[in-house]
Amino acid sequence: MLERHEIEAFLTLAEELHFGRTAERLTVSTTRISQTIRKVERAVGAPLFDRTSRRVTLTPIGRQLRDDLRPAYDLVRQSFQNAVAAGRGVTGVLRAGYFGSDAAHVLHAVSDTFRLRYPDCDVEIVELQLNNGLLAMQTGQVDLELTRLPAVHPEIVGGPVLFTEPKVLAVPAAHPFARRESVSLEDLAEVRMLRNPSAMLDSWDEFHSPRHTPSGRPIPHVPGADTFLGMLALVGAGKGVYPEGGRAMRYYARPDITYVPFNDAPPLQWGLVWLRVRETARIRAFEQTARLVVPSLPVPPAA
């Protein structure tokens, strides 16, 4: 098996047909080139070059090896350069995922500024569902996601909180809670909460759909849906309640659902997250752009 420097020496000499120029291109001595070529010829078992005092030419075996090696070597080198560009350069395509129309509004605003700052990098906005957030990053469907925090997982890292919103409870319009001005976390023991898909992060699920009230009372859970719109359909049909962010009052107003504010729940926090092993310059640049853009965005009023 040939090593990289041996392949480079052979292919460069096959192109230059001159030991001195080959040594200059590879920034080594002509002696080193001669030694390397002799080593390759010993490995092949036949001369690769005819050497005279006047010129250097390829032997038939040398030409065959050059023709076989060159395309593969160029492909490997280009693949490596592509990887370097993806890791260090803000070029190519960045895919950003989101859950819900409110998050999409934020991502599009960030993307508009990002494209102005980095014209060589395009942004694709991808809608995700409740059951495929982590999987979408693991399979490369998206590079990063705008999601509600916390997102605690060994593979995931993220930037700071970009914005917050009050927490509300989506209840059927005919539910007794719908006539209240507010509800408390303790009230959740008296309702059936729709359960998030099993694909959700445990930290996310427990924070947003807890199993117990702050005093320790159990909160009944019933099967939910794989999509947010599916969850709202279940709420509207009277199958359960679902905790949400206050922006839903504007983006997802429905006649069969009432959003009741919590009076004791901390605000929901939103931020960008991505996989640690897939972090690139594109991701870092997009996250930095989001820090600049999001604080200046107007907060949507309640419906």
Score class of each variant (00 low, 15 high):
Ala109Arg: 04
Leu292Ile: 01
Met193Ile: 11
Lys167Asp: 04
Ser184Gln: 12
Gln81Ser: 13
Ala281Leu: 05
Gln81Pro: 00
Ala96Arg: 11
Glu190Arg: 13
Pro154Ser: 02
Thr139Gln: 10
Ala302Gly: 08
Phe49Val: 02
Val152Met: 12
Ser184Thr: 15
Asp50Glu: 14
Ala85Pro: 00
Leu128Ser: 07
Glu124His: 08
Val168Ala: 09
Phe99Asn: 15
Pro266His: 05
Ala83Ile: 07
Gly100Ser: 10
Leu234Ala: 11
Leu146Tyr: 12
Thr59Cys: 09
Phe80Met: 01
Thr12Ile: 05
Phe114Met: 12
Val183Cys: 07
Gly158Arg: 03
Arg21Ser: 15
Phe99Ser: 13
Thr289Leu: 04
Ala23Arg: 10
Val93Trp: 03
Asn82Ser: 14
Val142Lys: 08
Val294His: 02
Glu279Gly: 01
His175Leu: 03
Ala9Trp: 01
Ala189Ile: 01
Ile257Cys: 01
Arg180Ser: 12
Leu297Ala: 06
Glu8Ser: 12
Val76Met: 12
Ile37Asp: 02
Ala104Ser: 09
Pro298Val: 04
Gly45Phe: 13
Met1Arg: 08
Ile33Leu: 10
Glu15Ala: 14
Asp120Gly: 13
Gly224Leu: 04
Thr36Cys: 13
Pro176Leu: 02
Met137Trp: 00
Val183Lys: 02
Arg70Ser: 15
Leu17Val: 02
Pro220Trp: 06
Ala136Gln: 08
Pro210Arg: 07
Pro47Ala: 05
Ala248Lys: 03
Ala302Pro: 06
Phe286Ala: 00
Ala170Met: 08
Arg217Gln: 14
Leu13Ile: 12
Ile125Pro: 01
Leu107Gly: 11
His153Val: 01
Arg195Thr: 08
Gly89Trp: 10
Thr91Phe: 07
Asp122Arg: 14
Leu194Tyr: 06
Pro267Met: 10
Gln129Phe: 15
Arg192Ile: 00
Val44Ala: 08
Glu24Thr: 06
Thr22Asn: 01
Pro176Ser: 02
Arg254Pro: 03
Arg195Glu: 15
Glu41Val: 12
Arg38Gln: 15
Ala189Lys: 02
Asp205Ser: 14
Val40Phe: 08
Val126Pro: 00
Val183Asn: 01
Thr30His: 05
Glu8Ile: 07
Arg32Lys: 14
Ala174Asn: 06
Arg38Asp: 01
Ala85Gly: 08
Gly216Ile: 02
Pro298Cys: 06
Ser198Lys: 08
Ala104Asp: 14
Met137Glu: 11
Pro220Gly: 05
Arg282His: 02
Phe163Thr: 09
Gln129Asp: 12
Thr213Asp: 10
Gly271Ile: 12
Gly20Arg: 11
Arg117Lys: 11
Ile37Val: 15
Gly133Leu: 12
Leu130Gln: 05
Ile283Pro: 00
Leu268Cys: 02
Met1Leu: 09
Ala96Pro: 00
Gly97Asp: 04
His5Ser: 14
Pro266Val: 10
Arg4His: 11
Thr30Cys: 03
Arg42Trp: 04
Arg77Phe: 00
Val168Asp: 05
Ala109Ser: 13
His5Leu: 11
Pro223Gln: 10
Pro214Tyr: 10
Pro266Arg: 14
Leu130His: 03
Ala46Ser: 15
